[in-house]
Design a protein around this nucleic acid. Structure first.
Lengths: 224, 224
DNA sequence: TATAAAATTTAGATTAGTCTAAAAATTTGT
DNA sequence: ACAAATTTTTAGACTAATCTAAATTTTATA
């Protein structure tokens, strides 16, 4: 019934790959790459997870989480994101410092703890990177947001999340003083290199490369 | 350099046994009993810890922690006790509920986290059971307290700690509404069964068996 | 559509942490 | 001080999680 630290990391990785891949089974290789592990190791583990009914596995054809597997993944993600809120809001960590610590805290096993933590934090719906926090049942808000790089209309958007959680990237946004919830007014899009000229919070003008724009999620100020 | 979850539990157990035993090496058997493990398993582990210079080991003659081993133990104890304060003061857990959760949290590895947690809690000196919290350097307050059962003088004492951390025992104290910091006035001591008649906070009269009195730590209100 | 390339699995090995049973060393009780 | 009891260690085995190398299956391409 219990899942080990290691198993939880596999389950989380598979959950994220399923989300990204949109439809279709998740391959052994993709899991191996995501976890920096050898494919042979992954084969062993997915056999064990299949025995535990956490996923379905067809030899040479990848895996899919069962409902049970998805629930475990969502529980771990819930804990990860709540702990990130705690670290930023209560302990004053920066948003680029919390990921590694939350990777440890997410495996602490106590239903009472996660629920009391949730209440203590005021039942937040989003973590410091703008990711939605699943509730006890695994349900979470779905926000219609898009990478800034896919935007073509020159209008005003709200910066509501990041795709990339690397410290270097987050620190770069901090140097721009670009924070979650800020408005981003698209002033022009460079056809040649797909870079953006924007105005942040109706005040400062900034330049964003395509690389940066593709890691920034926004939604339009009007429709949402 | 890093210590595993399992190693940390051995180190902590040995530290506590050294404290209890007062002088002399800690035996394989005592460690095995404390950790509910087979002596053969303990022998294996202490060999590994000796290789890592965490303790000194002489075959058939038990172990003693090195300075390095003691520092690791104190770091784990510091984390355990700070997390207990967090659970009780911030998340409203009862003092009888926090031990198991803190047993997990104490192994989270992040110096920044423990130090920020310490500050967030206001740098507490004692945990919810009255145990002193080591600081960054491993130093902690030493309080001259004694089990109530060793008291012979009929005077007023302060209830400042418990020896026994079992939930059942703590819950019993809660039903008596006997809390850390309360005054305990010793009214009489039964010679026959060593039980105590006391007055709590100058208000309520209660009866404590020798068994309970031996798990309660007090210090006199005048001298300390 | 046959074959080369890529992905996946199998086989065999390693380490940490655990066990039981047997052997060895120490301690204890006359 | 020696035999019995107790404690500790050794030997051999197991599981979870990992690896490398070789074999197999699938996929892509010419």
């Amino acid at each position: 019934m219990e899942t080990s630290f290691t198993e939880e990391n596999y389950i989380k990785a598979i959950f994220k790959l399923e989300e990204m891949g949109k439809s279709g089974a998740v391959s052994t290789n993709d899991i191996a790459i995501r976890l920096s592990m050898q494919p042979a190791t992954v084969t062993d583990m997915i056999k064990r997870l299949a025995d535990k009914k956490i996923l379905t596995y067809k030899k040479y054809h990848g895996v899919l989480l069962t409902a049970k597997g998805k629930k475990i993944a969502l529980d771990v993600i819930r804990k990860h994101r709540l702990w990130e809120v705690f670290l930023v809001k209560k302990l004053n960590f920066r948003w680029d410092e919390v990921h590694e610590i939350a990777e440890q805290l997410e495996h602490i096993n106590s239903e009472a703890l996660v629920n009391k933590l949730d209440d203590f934090l005021g039942n937040p719906k989003f973590d410091p990177h703008g990711d939605a926090i699943p509730d006890k049942e695994g349900k979470m808000r779905s926000v219609n947001s898009y990478p800034l790089s896919t935007i073509t209309k020159k209008q005003t958007y709200i910066f509501c999340g990041v795709v990339n959680h690397e410290a270097k990237f987050l620190q770069y946004l901090t140097t721009l003083d670009l924070n979650l919830g800020n408005t981003i007014e698209v002033e022009s899009i460079n056809e040649y290199d797909s870079s953006f000229k924007i105005k942040i919070n109706k005040k400062r003008h900034e330049f964003l490369s395509e690389q940066v724009a593709s890691s920034i999620l926004v939604y339009p100020t009007n429709g949402k």
